[in-house]
Design a protein around this nucleic acid. Sequence first.
DNA 1: ATTAAATCCCGAACAGTGTTTGGAATTATA
DNA 2: TATAATTCCAAACACTGTTCGGGATTTAAT
Lengths: 209, 209
Amino acid sequence: MQTLKPHERRHLRTQQAILDAARKLLAEKGVNGVSLRAIAREIDYSPAGLYEYFDSKEDIIHAVNSQGHERLAAEMGRVDTDLPGPEYIRGLGQAYIRFARTNPDHFMLMFTTAPNGNQLEQFMDEQSSFPILVSAIQKCIDEGIFALHPAGLYAMTLIFWTSVHGLAMLELTQLKDSGIDFDAINDIIGQTLFMGLISQNPEFNPQGK
Amino acid sequence: MQTLKPHERRHLRTQQAILDAARKLLAEKGVNGVSLRAIAREIDYSPAGLYEYFDSKEDIIHAVNSQGHERLAAEMGRVDTDLPGPEYIRGLGQAYIRFARTNPDHFMLMFTTAPNGNQLEQFMDEQSSFPILVSAIQKCIDEGIFALHPAGLYAMTLIFWTSVHGLAMLELTQLKDSGIDFDAINDIIGQTLFMGLISQNPEFNPQGK
DNA sequence: ATTAAATCCCGAACAGTGTTTGGAATTATA
DNA sequence: TATAATTCCAAACACTGTTCGGGATTTAAT
C-alpha cells in the first residue's frame, strides 16, 4: 500500500504539469498571462479539463505560491550554515532579495495573495524561509552577540524579515527603475539593525566603532 | 484666463466622481469590485461614457493611486512636527501603518502597481510621504542624535521606510490573522534602528541603557 | 470475461471583464 | 445661423473563469 496506483501517479504528474505551466507563464508573460486557457494550451488540454485537477484557478495560484515558498526556502537553504551568525543573516537577506529580483512576478504573487488558512502555519512551522531566519537569529544569540529580546525570538526575527521584505517589495514596485543600489541599502539596514541589537546586549559591548 | 470654462469644470468634476466611485468600490468590494461597469453604474453613466474622461482603466487606477499617496501624505502631515526627532519618526511610522490598516485594499493597490514614469519623481519630490520622512531624519541629524550616514540622507530614510513598509505589507498579506501585535513590533523595530544609528554617531554616545 | 463504476476530457455555453465603433444628442464657437 | 467640438450610449468584440452534459477510457467488482 506504500506505492500509488498508476492513475494516481498520472494525476499527480498532470497536476504538477499544470503548476509548471502556470509558473512558466507567470515568468514569461506576467500575472495577466496566467489564464486557464493559456495553461491548458501549454499542456495540450482544454480549459474545462483542468477542473479535473484543481477546483478553481484560485487553488492553482495557491499551489503555485506554496511551491514558490518552497523554492525561496531552498534558495535560503543554500547559504552556508557554518558562517558566523552575522554573516549568515547577511547571506539569507541577500538570497531573499535575489529570489525576488530573479522571480519578480512570482514573488509579488506570493506576497500579495493572502495565505489559505493552514498555509500560514505551514509557512511558520515547516522547513520554510521563516524558520531558517529564526535559526540564524538563534545562532547570534548562541554566539553571545545578541541578547534574547523580551518580546521573544520570533519578534527578533520579524525585525529582520520585515526590513528585507519591505526593501524587496519597494525594489519591485514603487522604486523600480529608480537607480537605487538596493544591495548597498540592504547592507546598511542589516548593519544598522545589528548595531541596534548589539547595543541592547549588556553582555556584549565592544568598545570603539 | 485664470478661471476655467464651465464645461472644463464639469469635466474635472466628473473625473473626480469617477475616482471617488472607484475608491468607494475599492474599499467596499475589494480590488475585484472595481470594474468599469460598476463605476459607471455608481455615477449613472454607461461604461463607454467613462472613456471620455479616462483613456483606460489603468489610467483610472493610476489616478486613484496618486490621490491615495496624497491621502497617505496628509495623514503623515497631521503628526506634530514640533515633536523631538525620535518621537516624530515614531509618529510617522504609526500613521503609515494606520493608513495601511484603515485602507488595506487601497494601500495594497498603491504599492503593488508600478508607478507611471514621472509618478516616481512626483513621489520622491513633491509634498509626499517620502520627503516628510526625510525631514524627520534630518531633524534627528540636526538635533545631533544621528550622524549623517556616508550613503546619504536618502539612504538613511530608506532604512526606516523599508522597515515600516515591510511590516505593513506583511500585516496585510502573509501575516494577516496571525494574532501578532504589529504596533509592538513596529516599536521594537524603530527602537532597534534607533540604537543602531545612534551607535554609529561618534558625537553622541549616551552611557547606560 | 462481463458488468458496474469511477475517472478523464472536451465542446458549448454563460456571465463577467476592458475596450472600440458609430452615431445621436447636446453644447460651444464662428 | 452654420460649424465644430464635446458628451454620451447601445452594440459588438475578444477575452476571462466557470458549469454542464455527455462521450470515451480506464479501473473495480462480480
